[in-house]
Amino acid sequence: MTDVDELAHWFPSRAEIELRPGGTIKFGGDPNMEDSTGRVIAVEEPRHLSFEWGGDELHFDLEALDEGRTRFTLTNVLDAENTAARNGAGWEVCLAALDAHARGERYEEPHAGAEAPWKGVYDSYVAAGFPSGAPIPGVDA
């Protein structure tokens, strides 16, 4: 959750994290978005990390299960309601990439950007009634 090289396998942006409450996170490397910064809200190694990004709060939690397995929970507290379908679809694609990486498999599709396989997932969220309409980086001008 905090190693820049590991995050590159699934997180939608390069994230360099100053790992302490109040620390800065630098997001960059996405050609569809301007570089930005966020603020670390909480760190409880190795179980919890939360931070602000683009007005949203992101909470990452790890829970040890049996047989060496770990449950990963991502909570995205939205700043704007109309981002629900967009963010949900984006995180679904990113988490598929994380799942593949955790199993030692290569995720052949891009996990971020306009070429990621999010469109069908996004359409299903919209059809299910999730709030939508927020601009999509790399797609909407």
Rank of each mutant, 00 (worst) to 15 (best):
T2C: 01
D3E: 08
V4W: 01
D5E: 10
D5K: 07
D5Q: 09
L7V: 06
W10L: 11
P12S: 13
P12M: 10
S13G: 03
R14S: 13
A15N: 04
I17H: 05
E18Q: 12
R20E: 01
R20F: 04
P21I: 05
T24W: 02
T24Q: 07
I25L: 13
K26R: 12
G28V: 06
G28D: 08
D30T: 08
N32T: 00
E34C: 02
T37N: 07
T37L: 05
G38R: 01
A42Q: 13
V43W: 05
E44F: 00
P46D: 01
H48T: 05
H48V: 06
S50V: 02
W53E: 00
G55T: 07
L58G: 10
H59G: 07
H59R: 14
D61R: 15
L62R: 14
L62W: 13
L62N: 14
A64S: 15
A64T: 14
L65M: 15
D66T: 12
D66H: 10
G68N: 13
G68A: 13
T73M: 09
L74F: 12
T75P: 05
T75F: 07
E81M: 00
N82A: 00
N82H: 07
A85R: 03
G90T: 00
G90V: 00
E92Y: 03
E92A: 09
A96D: 12
A96W: 01
A96S: 10
A96K: 09
A97C: 03
L98T: 05
D99N: 06
A100K: 11
E105R: 11
R106T: 15
Y107S: 14
Y107R: 14
E109T: 11
P110F: 14
H111S: 10
H111P: 08
A112V: 04
A116P: 09
A116I: 06
P117S: 08
W118N: 08
W118K: 07
K119I: 10
V121Y: 04
V121W: 02
D123M: 15
S124M: 09
S124W: 03
V126N: 13
G129T: 12
F130A: 15
S132D: 12
G133E: 09
G133H: 10
A134Q: 06
P135T: 09
G138D: 07
D140Y: 04
D140M: 01
A141D: 15
